[in-house]
């Protein structure tokens, strides 16, 4: 299977998409221009007169970027509007261990991407870059039209209100009940009144079929239940992009279907884009619009599940060996 890359397109398009921008994407010209990919609800539309000449030229230094001064783009052309996540040549290592070695990956608006790969290959590391929990050693992380890797804390937090992350173990706060867990986020990030909050919480719990756990502590829940409550807690903030770290691992087949269908439903009804990590072919089959296979720190193959599965890379064949029993999409 050949590596399917959209980066070439991604680089070319902004010039035509942004009529105000000079045709030639000279690295310095892009800096601070009103970028077509700037998210509509984000920072004020960057007309920002007079900003070009100032510190913005040094946008590589995150703290020099004025938070009011339009999208954070650094010196590279932003991806087109319909690309919500664009990782460009991302490298990440911990000490001598090199985990990511040049990852390229794009996710289109309103689609579900799936990341697959062996255990410990860095799938979680990869998705953590998309929410700014980790910063790349090298490379660019574009999320909703801005460079996450150049942002300072405030800008990151601003962006994070539009992102959701479901952690591998659910990451519920174990000193609080399920209800308080969900309340906690609403209390701190919104000014809704009590009744509205309660409604949202019950709706969220019903989405994952767990309204009865409302007053239980996380310690009283099973692993699968925790994960589903974690999902409900993520959904309650109505993010534009959700990252699911193994949303279905450890669930029974029925729950796998429930959760996978929920992800699809969220995509179809609310237009939520998502990146899911999964080993579960059933889930991948239901969820994936596009599969990215992580191998040796790079996306070794990308495409539909079938395309990736038919890849001739030996490691992939090994990974999918004996799974032909599953129906093809």
């Amino acid at each position: 299977m050949s590596r399917i890359s959209r980066r070439a397109d991604a680089r070319r398009q902004p010039a035509e998409a942004g009529p105000g921008a000079d045709a030639g994407p000279h690295p310095l010209d892009d800096d601070g221009l009103a970028t077509p990919a700037s998210d509509p609800t984000g920072a004020p539309a960057a007309g920002v007169p007079g900003a070009e000449g100032t510190a913005r030229g040094d946008a590589r230094e995150p703290h020099l970027v004025d938070p009011e001064a339009g999208p954070v783009t650094g010196n590279s052309p932003p991806p087109p509007d319909d690309i919500v996540v664009d990782l460009r040549d991302v490298y990440k290592g911990f000490g001598p261990k090199k985990i990511l070695r040049g990852v390229d990956m794009t996710v289109e608006r309103g689609t579900s991407a799936v990341v697959m790969g062996g255990s410990g290959t860095g799938k979680s590391v990869l998705t953590k870059h998309v929410v700014g929990l980790l910063r790349p050693d090298k490379g660019e992380v574009w999320v909703l039209g801005e460079r996450l890797d150049l942002m300072d804390q405030e800008q990151l937090d601003q962006k994070r209100t539009r992102l959701g992350y479901l952690f591998q173990g659910g990451a519920l706060f174990d000193s609080m009940t399920v209800y308080e867990n969900m309340r906690f986020f609403l209390d701190r990030l919104t000014t809704l009144d009590r009744g509205e909050k309660d409604d949202l919480i019950m709706e969220g719990l019903e989405d994952v079929n767990l309204p009865s756990t409302r007053d239980q502590y996380p310690a009283e829940l099973s692993g699968g239940q925790k994960k589903r409550v974690g999902l409900a807690r993520t959904l309650i903030m109505q993010p534009d992009i959700i990252l699911y770290d193994e949303p279905t691992t450890g669930l029974d087949p029925v729950s796998v279907r429930v959760v996978s269908d929920l992800i699809v439903k969220l995509r179809d009804t609310r237009g939520i884009s998502s990146i899911s990590i999964t080993h579960d072919l059933l889930a991948a089959e239901i969820v994936a619009d596009r599969v990215h296979f992580l191998l040796d720190g790079q996306i070794a193959a990308a495409g539909t599940l079938d395309e990736v599965r038919r890849s001739d890379i030996p490691e992939l064949q090994e990974f999918f060996k004996g799974t032909d029993a599953y129906g093809h999409a």
Binding site: K128, V131, L133, L156, D157, Q158, R160, T161, L163, G164, Y165, F167, A171, F173, F185, R188, L189, M237
Partner: peptide
């Protein structure tokens, strides 16, 4: 990390 991601 969950707190961090939720901008809390």
């Amino acid at each position: 990390d969950a707190l961090e991601v939720a901008a809390l």
